[in-house]
Design a protein around this nucleic acid. Structure first.
Length: 740
DNA sequence: CAGCTGTATCTTTTT
DNA sequence: GATACAGCTG
């Protein structure tokens, strides 16, 4: 017992030992926050202050929850398993499923993701005759989500007179949307948080049950909780107020999602008796990295302030790398990777490449692939967002919850069975008249007016097939059910025949991977003695993010957004795209609050690095159609010059600037931009990124230029055959193609 | 009336 | 540079 207390520093130990009453732990980046939390839980259990089942620990991602659970199992064995650990959303889903019968909710409710919500709203808006130009479904979705995050319900809005016409309509649509969800027995992400609050308020006996159950509550990443989560916590905490929250206001990066930094800043106003501990020793990063990060975040006004320090050596300077454009930036990233591998004996998995927007990954991917560097991408098109996965899941969702019309509409004519929009609309109108679900209406298709006999039998055939599988639901386990369904419904056949070989293989591969995940899920859940049925699996999947499925052990460079990188660490980190307009993002620079969040985001990125940190930016970058010339991010100016090394080439040469003075560096940067303009304006010449045509190879794109004049070597990637060729200008006979 | 083809429209970050 | 939708065709 005491052994593991010795593994903590004094402040961490104090935080672990302060078991009772409200506790706020301000934990700087890399200060051993997870370790402190884990040991605190272990301590509670070992000292028998609480049974595992009386502890609730809320983490920010499912992955964090899984890892903490593993650590606890290592410390305590399987006795720790009954504790509740998960994200707010998964914990809420669990409560709602447990209490479903008492609160008028189907146990098999579907969870709608943003995409589903937008689909639903699109339908509602058009049925109200509102133009999608003026009332963009995505905008309306985010407005409603925002309202929900602030626990504002449609009835609160409608009872007051709203000045703004737009707000008035949003309020009406909001109400219709809630009715739609109810009819479909669906909850969206925000409902998962809101419904338990309502349940606790409406059913005191249920609130009492959970108050009794959860004697100790711990919340990680408290700076990123929103108002609804705050209200929920207030209800979950009982009179003992054993609430321990851990967070770092400098790492609050989810304001746009409704996270309220005030939750952490005002914690001791909510709980005046709260004890506060500050973890300020950083165990992760070399001193240079830490000092640079500190210097950047110091420019923020809204913070509690702390002094993060380390015993570690200074380490190498932070390398600032300038690139011509995004392809060149990617090329330089490749050089960085090579250099780190050969001169510092790193492997792929030690390296992370971070960026502000997912779209930036493309250029990086291209270059990594060409240089045979294995990589994994987190985010972007998520595994569970892939079309084939969504298709299969939609089938399963309908099996579990036939009332889910969004899923049903997705599959009713997939694979194509000749049942189109018009027919579905007719049946839907019938369903509304009869006050039954769309699915039940399919079974009575012969009663629907104006539907031909052939059409009717197509619909009926689909209905009967689904019905049959619904009956098989209890006989087969989740994987058996899913795989039989997928072949019988013709999905496998569809993917085998409708696409080229490469795509077909990868899609089928993905479906198989889904089945493998299901199997693993079933095993794990059975081990814990929890629900392992299809409904439970779908719930888990709905709340899963890319990072949760990330396999750290595979040896590959990791690519992800700065947001996804929160909570992770890598020996080598490279943050790309450090230009004005991208980092900070264009629309954020006007608003000080948003600018500060961008700065925190950069801070989060920097503090992921343990040993080396590279910062790159491109002077020119293509975004949508037009490209833009960019100036370096203002955040770069906030890093003390003596901590920076200015690199124009990565390996071999010492291209580093000796310029220690800011002005000198600025002059250098400006010189770069001058150069660049000339480069780009040389009409008739070739440039990197240019599209060209070659007699034998067809259309291609220049990815590298070496030398000059007729002897210039031009490396071109030809998309058609996916090959890359190095050509001599004189002989290649390349024709430049018009842009676009 | 289903299904295909071409055009318009956007791209911040995610539970 | 992918997706959604309108409009056309069979």
């Amino acid at each position: 017992m005491e052994d593991f207390l010795n593994e903590l520093n004094e402040e961490q130990r104090k935080a672990v030992l302060a078991t009772d009453g409200p506790v706020l732990i301000i934990a700087g980046a890399g200060s051993g926050k997870t370790r402190t939390l884990t040991y605190r839980i272990a301590y509670l259990i070992k000292k028998q202050l609480a049974k595992p089942s009386e502890i609730l620990a809320v983490t920010f991602t499912n992955k964090a929850a899984r890892e903490m659970k593993e650590r606890l199992t290592t410390l305590l064995g399987s006795q720790a398993l009954p504790l509740w650990m998960g994200t707010f959303h998964s914990v809420c889903a669990r409560i709602l499923r447990t209490e479903a019968e008492h609160i008028g909710l189907s146990r098999n409710f579907t969870i709608y993701d943003v995409d589903d919500s937008v689909r639903a709203l699109r339908k509602i808006l058009s049925s109200k005759g509102l133009s999608p130009q003026k009332f963009n479904p995505k905008v309306v979705q985010s407005r409603i989500s925002r309202l929900k995050n602030h626990f504002v319900l449609p009835e609160n809005l409608l009872e007051q007179e709203l000045d703004d016409e737009y707000d008035q309509i949003v309020a009406e649509v909001y109400q219709a949307y809630m009715a739609f969800l109810k009819k479909n027995e669906a909850l969206d992400f925000d409902d998962l948080l809101i419904r338990p609050i309502q349940v606790f308020d409406d059913f005191p006996e249920i609130k009492a049950k959970y108050n009794k159950k959860f004697q100790y509550i711990l919340v990680d990443e408290y700076q990123d909780t929103n108002h609804a989560q705050y209200l929920l916590l207030k209800r979950l905490v009982n009179e003992r107020k054993n609430l321990c929250v851990v967070g770092d206001e400098d790492q609050s990066i989810y304001g746009w999602r409704g996270a309220d930094i005030k939750n952490i800043l005002n914690f001791n106003r909510d709980f005046p008796e709260a004890r506060i501990f500050k973890l300020e020793e950083n165990y992760r990063s070399h001193n240079n990295i830490l000092q640079a990060a500190n210097a950047v975040v110091r420019n923020n006004k809204s913070r509690l302030g702390k002094n993060l320090w380390t015993r570690k050596q200074d380490g190498p300077k932070i390398k600032l790398v300038v690139a011509d454009d995004e392809a060149d930036e990617a090329l330089k990233v490749v050089e960085i990777i090579h250099d780190e591998m050969y001169t510092h004996k790193r492997s792929f998995k030690d390296i992370a490449i971070l960026y502000r927007t997912n779209a930036q990954s493309r250029a990086l991917e291209d270059q990594l692939r060409r240089n045979a560097i294995s990589y994994t991408i987190i985010g972007g098109v998520k595994f569970y967002d892939r079309k084939e996965i969504k298709d299969v899941l939609a089938y399963l969702k309908v099996l579990v919850n036939p009332a889910d019309s969004v899923a049903l509409r997705r599959i009713i004519n997939f694979p194509l069975r000749g049942v189109g929009e018009t027919t579905v609309n007719k049946i839907e109108r019938f369903a509304e008249m009869e006050n039954i679900t769309l699915f039940d209406a399919l079974g009575r298709v012969e009663e629907v007016a104006n539907i031909s006999a052939t059409m009717g039998s197509r619909v009926k055939q689909f209905y009967l097939m689904m019905k049959k599988f619904m009956e098989l639901k209890d006989e087969l386990n989740a994987v058996e059910l899913a795989s039989t369904l997928v072949s019988e419904a013709g999905i496998m056949h569809h993917y085998q025949t409708e696409y080229d070989q490469y795509e077909s293989e990868s899609r089928i591969e993905n479906i198989k991977e889904l089945f493998a995940t299901m199997e693993q899920f079933t095993r794990e859940r059975e081990g814990e003695g929890r629900d392992s049925d299809l409904a439970a699996f779908l719930e888990e999947v709905s709340l899963m993010t890319d990072i949760d499925t990330w396999n750290e052990s595979s040896n590959a460079v990791t690519l992800m957004t700065l947001h996804s990188a929160k909570g992770l660490e890598f020996p080598v980190v490279c943050i790309t795209g450090l230009e004005m307009g991208l980092m900070p993002l264009q629309r954020t620079s006007a608003d000080l609050k948003e600018l500060e969040e961008e700065r925190r985001l950069f801070y989060v990125g920097m503090t992921r690095a343990m040993e080396s940190l590279y910062l790159t930016y491109a002077k020119y970058r293509r975004r949508y159609n037009a490209g833009t010339y960019n100036t370096p991010s203002l955040f770069l100016d906030e890093i003390p010059t003596e901590l920076l090394e200015f690199k124009t080439r990565i390996a071999g040469t010492r291209g580093a600037s000796r310029g220690k003075r800011k002005t000198e560096r600025k002059a250098k940067l400006e010189a770069y931009f001058q150069n660049d303009d000339q480069n780009q304006d040389r009409s008739g010449e070739f440039f990197v990124g240019q599209k060209v045509y070659h007699e034998t190879f067809g259309k291609g794109q220049i990815i590298q230029l070496e030398g000059s004049g007729d002897k210039m070597k031009i490396t071109v990637h030809f998309g058609r055959d996916g090959i890359t060729k190095k050509l001599i200008k004189k002989f290649a006979n390349l024709t430049p193609l018009e842009e676009n």
